[in-house]
Nucleic acid binder design. Sequence first.
RNA 1: GGAGAGGUGGCCGAGUGGUCGAAGGCGCUUGCCUGCUAAGCAAGUGUGGGGGUUACCCCACCGAGGGUUCGAAUCCCUCCCUCUCCGCCA
Length: 424
Amino acid sequence: MIDIKLLRQSPQIFIEALEKRNANTELVDKIIELDKEWRKLTTELNNLKAERNSLSKLVAKAKAEKNEELAREIIEKSKKIGEKIKEIETVQQDIESKMKDIALNIPNIPHESVPVGSDETENIEIRRWGEPRKFDFEPKAHWDLGPDLGLMDFERAAKLSGSRFTVMYGYLAKLERALIQFMLDVHTKENGYTEVWVPHLVKRETMTWTGQLPKFEEEAYNIKKDDLFLIPTAEVPLAALHAGETLNEKELPKKYTAYTPCYRREAGSYGKDVRGVIRQHQFDKVELVWITTPERSFDDLEKLTQDAEKILQLLELPYRVVSLCTGDLGFAAAKTYDIEVWLPSYNAYKEISSCSNDTDFQARRANIRYRGKDNKLHYVHTLNGSGLAIGRTLVAIMENYQNPDGSITIPRVLVPYMGVERIP
RNA sequence: GGAGAGGUGGCCGAGUGGUCGAAGGCGCUUGCCUGCUAAGCAAGUGUGGGGGUUACCCCACCGAGGGUUCGAAUCCCUCCCUCUCCGCCA
């Protein structure tokens, strides 16, 4: 959520932000106009209420003095004010809800360090790690490798659930589990995260707090009967964990990690990544979330990103890090690094993690604050990143570690988790 | 699912129609006092919003939203949440 005071004071900041994002700037003008009217009515209301309050006190006094006639007189006067208040309140509430609707649909302001650009082609590569393997045979894509091994089954998945679902057997199923375990172990033992186990169904409010709603309702699976949503990422329950709370600066930053499945309708992505397990309605992910302070949040984003990169380094998978340009930035993010892993089937780097600083955007919506050294209340900054997407990691291992005979070598660090050195 | 109890400030806890934003206690901050610490004494100590050049003034908030009333923490309705008992259940 945007800061209405800042918007009043310098609407230009928001207009520029929306322009950089290729978003509609009309919203800003509209909300400013509504705000003007709102303040006018608010002042009027405050004055009327003040008058009513003082009259009420006079009534109490008159009654105490047994002066019934005077009391009745004042009550009459007060009644009229009450009617007027009700009238204005109706108008004010209407304006208020309109303002809120707009405010909830205005995205976060991009950080000054974010490259300006219109779409993903203008993202900036920050660094590369590792060298894509040169194959002396024709490498298979995972959507061939998996079924050829008899360990990945798209047909039966489609029978059960439709498109964009996968069934895995044996060592591939185990590899999925091993990756979850491995990543959680690294983050908790080496990177200092607290493991959290969270609900996978959350309330409409919760989705609104973190920015998924109201704008992206089409993307979410909703259980109508109870109006609960299947989480599209563990970021939702993790970032909303402290909603409504006042934290102590001493306990910040809080670093949380959680494994959850993620559920996404992928409504706008027909024809995109249709083969294999790259884009699924259900996928596993180990998520990283920081609750931190404004002073350090951008430094923390660097650390969070490195925590995610570490997984790829340990798995010895080549990757690069790109800084998303303003046009490619997510709704809640002020800055985002995508980590892209090398996929032979795409002959390209493909997103495997997205690490964002949402600054105070979610904190405002969810009302998460901390008491600072100045003894005042401030909004926290929230950061989130995949550490990593499990399915895509599994695919990257399959494709990058495949052998000419169609077997797959298990990365060294995973051998203890798998109990074998290769599949099959 | 059935029956009941309850949600008040950082915490505990009083308050059933009129100076209640809310007694009292704990905690916290500052000052005094004191070899140090503790105790003691005094003062202060919520959040959000509107207005004013400052001093400051005003409004709202007692789980949420409506309603009754001149006036609601207090009465009524709806919802949410917590707890206890019963039923069911992994």
